[in-house]
Simulated assay, not measured.
Amino acid sequence: MAELALIIGNGFDVDLGLPSKYSDFAGSPEFHDLARRMNDMYFVEERDNSLVLQIQKASNESNWFDIEEEIHKYVVNHSSLDEKMVRMVRSEFDSLKRALTNYLKRVSKDLEHKADKQRLAYQLKYQLQFSPLSKIDIYFNYTTSELFLEMPTYHEIGKGLFTYVHGSLRYDDIVLGCDLQPGEQVNRQLSFMYKYNQLHQATHIARHLLEAREIIFFGHSVNEMDFCYFKEFFKTASASPTPTRHLTFITFDEESERAIKDNIRNQGISVSDLYSNLETLNFIHTKNYYANKENEVTKWNEIMTRLLTPVKRGVKVR
């Protein structure tokens, strides 16, 4: 049983200074080379049905975009393709995953030496070495776990565990794609792009979250594509008659806090009930912390005090 569950999203990498946003990838040589190949080799009809070229168009139209949302749009809007087109899209999808893997390997090379050790992402993982709580790291990113695996005490047997939900660069098995949304039918032609068809091992996320007394999301937006992993936790936490859990989101600013709350509410979970039925629910804004805003510094110090202070064992979480 893990008393602390740390859920790590791509915002964790960004906080460390890694250019790992999808928009960064879309501006990279790896992606530009891939898109150029697609454009040069395809006829007009093939270009109109190209997954990569659709993603390129979306990236050109907005400073912020999500490749997985574009994949979802593609799957929804292409429910009838001939066999040749399906083969073309599958080849593109495999090439897209390879290009993303190669890009992230390049920009994260020597991350240990590049990472700013004053950033909250680094400080949290470093300080948690000394926490008396047993812990589980749940990685939704692909990149930074290796930076911390060498910390001498963090993953001692029986003290720290970790799981890669969407694979990692270490094993060249990243999971990229989308999942079905409520009411959608399976697109069997393109089902290779559904995340569930790329998963090969159990992660027990619901159990880990429900057993933990401390749950920290760092850099994860609790977005629609990943909410299936958290649904049971939020349902239970919002209805618990005995508040015993501490839930903390570490995110960039007030706007990203609102986005997280909206994402939770859009999935049918009452945010007001979470405030009522959790011991604490806090948002720490990295932007304000780095600006030395007193409120953020106080919240950070409070959570670190709680995580590093020995606790009485045997507290049941319902």
Rank of each mutant, 00 (worst) to 15 (best):
R106C: 05
G314P: 11
W64C: 12
I174K: 05
P19H: 00
F283K: 09
R98T: 11
P29S: 11
M225W: 04
F12A: 09
Y275I: 07
L6E: 02
E146S: 15
L176V: 05
Q181L: 07
L247M: 10
V311I: 09
E184R: 06
M41F: 12
N295M: 10
E83P: 14
N266A: 01
Y74Q: 13
E254Q: 02
N10T: 08
R245S: 04
K73R: 10
R119A: 12
D273E: 06
D48Q: 08
I7G: 01
A206P: 09
S108Y: 04
A99V: 05
Y142N: 02
T251H: 03
D173N: 01
R313K: 15
M38E: 01
V86C: 01
C228D: 03
V165A: 13
T236S: 14
I174D: 01
T305E: 02
K235F: 00
S145D: 11
A5D: 08
R188Y: 13
S28D: 03
I216M: 10
L16M: 15
A239H: 06
T144P: 03
F93T: 02
H113R: 13
Y289R: 11
L124P: 04
S20A: 08
R306M: 00
L199A: 05
R106D: 12
H72Y: 05
I215E: 06
T236R: 04
F93D: 07
C178F: 00
D226A: 04
L104P: 12
V76Y: 05
M193T: 00
